[in-house]
Design a binder for these strands. Structure first.
Lengths: 113, 113
DNA sequence: TGACAATATGAGTATATGCGCATATACAGA
DNA sequence: TCTGTATATGCGCATATACTCATATTGTCA
């Protein structure tokens, strides 16, 4: 039989939600958009320029990020302004960054670099 | 022209690596395996029991997680023991958890719950 | 060496999803 | 209302990947 799960452990349903959040971030194009929004809010056209992605593509990724609660949006006349809604995102990225740096440093060391 | 990127911003290549890391975590089955390994190392058969996934499936996910540097493995006779190699993973999950909790709480509040 | 147990992997299938193209929708100004 | 601009979206294609089944591989013990 399956081992008893720790009282502190997350339910399967919670894991599903967490996985979904990670999956949203698991796409370089979307991270690019987040990066472009780090210092200031931007409209779609600006984000198209910033990222080099097509307009349709940017629009879809923005939708994904907004549905996930990571971005917020506001209409201003013809334009739609996107902004970071969940600033914790940057901590997350930094965390992953640190983890990857450690790993690469260890690899480099293993090869006497 | 694209807006100038902050000096502190991550390169496209770095974003790609970060996205890959997130993508690895963007699968509930893999999070389940990580959860099962939280308190102690386990062999494959045990993980099959813990998660209810098929043996082939577990084996593949373990490979993915190990290649990402999240798990480590060690052979003991016929068995292969897997364990958490990057304990920062739990911080990451907790972080996402907190972020989701905030969001759900806000939603609940918006609906007068 | 033969039988068995634990794990990994090749092949095939189903599903998800990123992308581009074209077009629809929403809004502003003349 | 007509035109042009900004954004969103339907559709189809190509690809990635999770899953299952069957089998290979690796190691143990008699």
């Amino acid at each position: 039989m399956p081992r008893k799960i720790e009282p502190s452990a997350l339910s399967d349903q919670a894991l599903e939600l967490i996985a979904t959040r990670f999956r949203v971030l698991g796409e370089a194009s979307r991270l690019k958009l987040i990066r472009a929004l780090e210092s200031e809010e931007r409209n779609v056209s600006q984000l198209v320029e910033d990222t080099g992605l097509t307009q349709a593509n940017v629009s879809r990724h923005l939708q994904t990020l907004t549905e996930a609660g990571i971005l917020g949006r506001r209409k201003e006349g013809l334009n739609v302004i996107y902004f970071i809604a969940d600033h914790g995102i940057f901590d997350l990225c930094k965390h992953v960054c640190g983890s990857l740096q450690e790993r690469f440093a260890a690899n480099a060391k293993a090869f006497g670099g």
